[in-house]
Simulated assay, not measured.
Amino acid sequence: MFKNMENKICIVTGSSSGIGKGVAKAMAQRGAKVIMVSRDKTRGKESFKEISAISNNVEWIPADLCSVESIHKLVLSFKSKYSKLDILFNCAGDKIMKKYYTIDGFDGLFFSNYLGHFLLTNLLFEHLKNATPSKVITISGRGHKPSLTEGNFKSAIDLNDLQGNIHFSYGKYAKQATLAKIMFTYELSRRWKSYDIASTTLCPGLTHTNQGEYFPLPLKILVPLFYIFKETQTIEEGAAHLINLAEKSNNEINGKYFEGGKKGLFEANSSEESYDDSVAKKLWEESKKLLDHQNSSV
């Protein structure tokens, strides 16, 4: 039985496919007002058409979360229609395994997976405050920890080279982007707790999505085999973990990291490095400086 989410307004980034789409669909089924956010491409249009058939309470705001201007336009469009935001689902991200830059000159991996959501979340502060108790739910991942599949080494925040402009390594900076999202979640929970805005993050677990579409050809061949031999979840199963967090009270989830899988969703410990409050504060300030340099202060 679905828990009723009527009168709840939510934004779901990355809603054209994968877990983001699964979350948008599940929230629509529960009666929420769903604002789908994705790039203005065929897949985004088709996903909106599919989910709006479930509910007439679904809207699509096309936006490129690799563009500072596009993020600001997204927020302005949202604020022109709504006075509050109950839940922000930060689901978007990419796994492009090469160095590339956004239109604003940011490292693409760093911005698409972390800094864009840092900006979006901060720009939506007043509307989250208007809806309290409200929530920010961010997909991160186990990948910030040592693992055989994602690099058997610890992740750390390199404050001297956050964007890998001195020496780029996909393995290092993919891990750092994941760690940055977790540390951002914890710092946000400390800064916004007094407003009754909960901030939480999770690794949904291995889910059969299309994120491998940007992988090099050898990996594109291996990924389907990996899905066959590992216990993968469907998109609906992966999305259910985010819905689980959305349905919990703020006290149950604020400032916490969760891991999901076929057996359910459980609170877990993130890496030792992720709990360093002093580094989290420095990361926050450096993130602001990077955006201020683009005249996009938060």
Rank of each mutant, 00 (worst) to 15 (best):
A239E: 04
N269E: 14
K79G: 03
I253C: 00
A24D: 04
T185Y: 03
V58Y: 07
I228T: 15
H208Q: 11
I166F: 12
G14N: 07
N152L: 10
L179F: 02
L291I: 09
K263M: 06
D161P: 05
G108F: 05
G20W: 07
G31I: 08
R39P: 09
A246P: 04
N160S: 14
Y170G: 02
Y101L: 12
Y257M: 03
V279C: 06
E50M: 14
S169Q: 00
T102L: 04
T234Q: 01
S55H: 07
K154R: 09
N160R: 15
G171I: 00
K45C: 06
T209L: 04
F89T: 03
S77K: 13
L162D: 01
K282S: 09
K145N: 14
K79T: 07
E150L: 12
I11N: 03
K281P: 11
N122F: 07
N250V: 00
S155P: 08
A174M: 12
I166N: 14
A63F: 10
N250P: 02
Y170R: 03
K21P: 09
K3V: 09
C10P: 02
F266Y: 15
N57W: 10
A198G: 00
M5N: 05
K281T: 11
S297Q: 11
L291N: 13
Y227W: 13
F215Y: 13
N90V: 07
F48I: 10
S297T: 11
R191Y: 03
S55R: 14
S80W: 08
T209I: 05
H241R: 10
A240K: 06
S287L: 10
M1G: 13
P216Q: 05
I182S: 00
Y100H: 10
T207S: 05
E6W: 04
L88R: 04
T121K: 08
M183K: 08
K262L: 06
G261I: 09
K25Q: 09
F153G: 01
S134H: 01
L162G: 00
K95A: 13
F226D: 15
D40V: 07
K8I: 02
S249T: 12
L162V: 01
I54K: 06
I139D: 00
I61T: 12
V136F: 00
S70E: 05
G164S: 01
E6N: 14
N165E: 13
G105N: 04
S67W: 06
C203W: 06
T121M: 11
Y186G: 00
T209C: 04
D277F: 09
N269K: 15
D94K: 13
S67V: 12
N160E: 12
K172H: 02
N113P: 14
G108H: 08
S80N: 15
G31T: 07
L119G: 12
E69Y: 14
